[in-house]
């Protein structure tokens, strides 16, 4: 039991990542309102971003900007002193892609509301059956 608490504390980012991903997946599948589904999709995307940033983070390290930049040739650069910047660069692209998918999804929601005058999935299905 005493071994379990440090494991839970040190891996807390990954537990929250799993919880956020399950919340987003549940919202996408089970929610009835289309805007709620889109919010769930965004939570799912940010959970993946949290996972990647947690991979790159490390304790006792600084942000990935090289120190003594003007005379870097006189100092050895140790990678252990810097947070890994590769996941950051990948996740910058993921954030921009997330807002692009959000814009397309909201445009589709507005078109669906113009045609069916509702955002609830069951009412839309009922109106589609009538036509």
């Amino acid at each position: 039991m005493s071994d379990l608490v440090p494991i839970l504390i040190s891996k807390v980012n990954y537990w929250v990542y799993i919880a956020l991903m399950m919340i987003g997946l549940w919202a996408v599948i089970a929610k009835n309102n289309l805007v709620k589904k889109i919010i769930g999709m965004n939570i799912l995307q940010t959970a993946v971003i949290l996972f990647f940033i947690s991979i790159g983070a490390k304790y006792n390290a600084t942000i990935p900007i090289i120190m003594h930049g003007h005379d870097a040739g006189h100092h050895a650069v140790n990678a252990i002193d810097y947070i890994n910047p590769l996941p950051h660069v990948l996740m910058l692209t993921a954030i921009v892609v997330a807002v692009a998918t959000l814009g397309v999804a909201l445009a589709l929601v507005i078109k669906v509301h113009q045609k069916y005058q509702t955002l609830e999935e069951d009412e839309i299905l009922a109106k589609m059956d009538e036509q």
Binding site: I53, T62, P64, I83, L92, I95, V99, L106
Partner: peptide
């Protein structure tokens, strides 16, 4: 967590533009 570039992008694009799109 030290990802300052991701923090900037999230504040401007994720929080700013996304909220404006949702409210609109």
């Amino acid at each position: 967590m030290g990802a300052v570039d991701v923090a900037f992008t999230e504040a401007s694009v994720g929080a700013g533009v996304s909220t404006v799109l949702f409210v609109a």
